[in-house]
Design a binder for these strands. Sequence first.
RNA 1: GCCCGGGUGGCGGAAUGGCAGACGCUGAGGACUUAAAAUCCUCCGGGGAUUUUUCCUCAUGUGGGUUCGACUCCCACCCCGGGCACCA
Length: 849
Amino acid sequence: PSKPKYYVLEMLPYPSGTMHMGHMRNYAIGDVVARVKRMRGFNVLHPMGWDAFGLPAENAAIKNKTHPRTWTNNNIAQFQRVLRRFGFSYDWRREISTCEPEYYRWNQWFFLRMLERGLAYRKKSLVNWCPKCGTVLANEQVVNGGFCWRHEDTRVESREIEQWFLKTTAYSDQLLDDLKQLEGTWPERVILMQKNWIGKSQGAKVKFAVMGVKGAKPIEIFTTRIDTIYGATAIILAPRHPIVDKLLRGPMNRKPQPPLKAKLKQLDRMRQTSVKTEDLATLEKEGFFTGRYAKNPFTKKKIPIWVGNFVLMEYGTGAIMAVPAHDQRDLEFCRKYKLPVRVVVQPKEVESSKSKAEGQKKSASVTGSSRQVGEEAFTDYGISVNSGPFNGLSSEEAIAKMSAFAARKRFGKAETIYRLRDWGISRQRYWGTPIPVVYCAKDGMVPVPDKDLPVLLPPDPTFLAGETYAAPLQVQTGMADSPLATPEFVNTTCPKCGGPARRETDTMDTFVDSSWYFYRYCDPHNDKAPFDPAKVAYWFESPDAESPGIDQYIGGITHAILHLLYSRFWCKVMRDLGLVKHDEPIARLFTQGMVQKGGVAMSKSRGNVVGAEEMAQKYGADTGRLYTLFAAPPEKDLEWSEESIEGCWRFVNRVYRLIERHGEAIANAGSFDFGRSPMSEKERELIRRTYQTLQRVTSDFETRWHFNSAIALIMELTNDIYALEPLEQGVRPEVRKEVLEMLTLMLAPMTPHLAEELWEILGHPDGLWNAQWPILVTGQLELAREDEVEIPVQVNGRVRGRVKVPAGSAEPEVVRVALTLPTIAQHVNGKRVIKQIYVPDKLLNLVVG
RNA sequence: GCCCGGGUGGCGGAAUGGCAGACGCUGAGGACUUAAAAUCCUCCGGGGAUUUUUCCUCAUGUGGGUUCGACUCCCACCCCGGGCACCA
């Protein structure tokens, strides 16, 4: 605790079947950082745990008729064994597993806090539904463009069922605005992806009165282009818009007549279309006229109300105004159904075309009404035309004035909407955290009191009994079938009235588990609270750190949106609960590249995994670590190559042979005196190369994260030492010791086992794990400097020769020497030197002409 | 369609406006060995001149530009990878 703290974390793994080199790379990067920081005097927190709930465990359990817990715990044991074998420096005392009640009870606890604050709620929402399975499917289980993965002849339906949500949208603005705090420390593209995901859109909502239907509420539309409202030639509703039925049937709710019947059929089909977005993208636009009209509040003219399959109920208000002249989708729709196209925005005169040279003042007059609209809508900003009192305004001005006008007349207002939606956390699955509420006939939905947490998963899920879930319970509970729906679990008593009640059978999305686990590491065994705020404050809010949060988080880009967004949301909720004081949980984020084989990411399903344990078996853990660090820069994808790993294996052995050869002889040597006694040429060279390498490796580790070039530098040093063999001739033991010790220390973060072994050979029986990173001091720094430098000499930017001069030589001296070179003289001869550029100790360029 | 990355030898890659190809792999040749493995040494972008040595020239996706000098900065385009998307 006397040292500054440093929290380095790799994203926790899902313990699936095999741990492969893709996993390993992630941990190797994190472990280098952890070890370097430790060597540099930090108090490092570097924990590991298991994202242990989830679907694959359940599927494996169904397939093998075993319990998900058994399958998961076996995998955890395997993963742990491999991680230990690779020597990653984790604090195993802090290990967590999200499927343990000691962990997931706090998911429930957080859920209840959110429920109290209105941040958790239940609502009907659209889901993928397979009628044959009688259950909800995850998007991933919808295959072949809309069919069930288990019943490939069955089209997945879109259904509305009650689901639990967390109100991420309550934090839309903060989630967007606080991204600014992450600029420079998070990858730019992750910030951008989150920005797009939140999707802030500024526009206006406008109400259109429905004509001729008694009691019909006005239809509210959202638009970012209120300035085009004079060009609106229809209103188009989402098929699911609640007003559609009323418009079609009218106030009497008559029996459908033949044309109406056809429309209802079409509507039904449109509503049944899968909610999968990929399908929507390829869908042909279609729709029908409802037979009703709305009044455009600006023009006071009536325009037809249509239903269109391309309008989404989930975005905006579920209704749009169609402005075919200025929106491509509207144009396509209106052309198909022969709706009128009305131009209301004219392109601005391009400034540069008002050429002064021509001396002509081009007329800015508007010829809008006669303008032809072709296949492409004009969607840019311009000048309003055919827009009554707003004619001649720029689009920007028109948007401001028309929004204000609408607000004054009370039929609309400027509004900002977001693409971000609330987080649906309900899963009709077994292997997850039970949602801690019960339903009572008298008291309705009742939260489970804190004292009754955790709500434990029933030990025996229904699916272990057979293929189908317990059907009678569906009738009994009226809920969607769920593997939790056993009478023992469902039937309980109401915490309020003590009467009979039934439990919620949904479990939570596993992203809940990973949204806050990194706080739990600070206090993993607390059974009174998710964590002690003081302990979290130490690791997250130390005043010494450059900014609050995990100092360095490392993981794949695949989690750029979901996991990282949910974690940010959770942090803000915790802050508002008074548990933490910071706004953002992750100070610095690094997204490492994938390990690929055959151009695609390693995965068990593709069958291209290279097992981590096999590699350790074959080449040793250190070679495996070294290879994943050396083969590519950490942020780039890495194509697995068995031949390249051989090269690392050779290097590891080469270093070992070198030190083994000299180690015993120099183990008891005294310490190097920084050259206060005279040095041989060979000693001087050795020491200089070693110190220079240290300086560059330090910079590669600390500031640039160029692990691959750091390793290249160490390889070069090793080659240089070999080139000076035999070292016994002309190199004193203490100099050899200095060089070989530094080589060992530099390797330690990457190949810790090798380094420990070498350290012992070099006469340090106490081990290297606690050694300090070497820092050059006065005396050593001078030795790192070159006395003589070789300077490339250019003539007109092309290298024509090199000169060797003492370091720090003055420009005239360098020029004088350069001109003595025949190749230089040849190019300069007979010409005049117009200019000379000299970069001290680096380069000389003579410009002749 | 919009938004991000990225294009350098046979391959992975290095070079933060200053010697393009470090380091490693592969390949070729040699040493050691009865032999093999291991190890060690030499060479390895294209073209040309000179033949022991050097020198010239082309070359970092393509075409322009800025600069004494560009893989690096700017503009346009091509290709590859990724993200988002009938988002009103």
